[in-house]
Amino acid sequence: MAIHEPGSAAEPVGLFRINTGSCNGCDVELAVTSAVAEFDVEQLGCRYTESAHEADIVLVTGPLTVRAREEVLRLHAATPRDKVTVAVGVCPVSGGVFRDSYAVDGPLERHLPVDVNVPGCPPRPQALLEGIREALEIRRARREGSEPTRLPGDRKQPGKPGTDNFPARGRLSFDAAACVDCRMCRHVCAAGAIRFEERDESVRLTLWHNSCVFCGLCSHYCPTGALSVTGDWRLDHRATDAFRQIERGEVPYAPCAGCGEPIIPAAPQLLHAAFRRPNPEIEKLKNLCPTCRQRMSIGVPRR
């Protein structure tokens, strides 16, 4: 039996899984946390149970399909009142790539209270363990009637040595200075995780990490590298913070050097991609609107 409190042998904490219609990615990785020694939930003093009544922590996967709803709600209702519910992967939170289907009835929080989110698609086992750790802390605090404390080394900390030597595809990062407002990222995003807003002084990009499926296609098609994949996979958070998990940047308008119309200037990265070594003549193009650019190009003598 696992020992999860120093000095006292205690009953292991029961983990109970509910699949609401997932692609099985999160479920297969959860299976790893019961079968592979390095990721075994035993190290957290937990064990998996097949009985809803023994659930101290409920791990929910999938976008919640219409057909699975009845059984999911029945199972969740059969778990003890004081359990902690963890949404595993982005599907329960936002539907992920399956949002807005006729056959999907999420998000999960519409039907039952969620305590912790573990984004990822699927989250790596290390991230699953961090999410379970967070749930254990909430459980402890509830029992003691105290506020759950933030776990030490909470954000952007690499895991313990030996488990984290690989560059996992994690949180996307946005560099507004490199963005040229082409919106290819939004075009290729299957999960609808990217929004552009046109404001008075700027164009604003918002990327919601709870919708993102971390495929990195936005970054692949981004012509300037404004969007890039980071190795930051520690994204677990309290469900109350679900809508604050964003990446955001403002791309300011500047007046066209020719006519003064507000435009998004071409980023240096774009000029480098297009011309390799832009000369001062080409550099001038970046502050011109398309109309003025054409006018200038025709006026420029051929070399």
Binding site: S94, R99, S211, R244
Partner: peptide, 21 residues
Amino acid sequence: FTNAATSKALWDKVMAGARED
């Protein structure tokens, strides 16, 4: 039948959450 109602509701919350912050 297949409108983007869920997307809209969720994004409204994302935008509202960002305003609060």
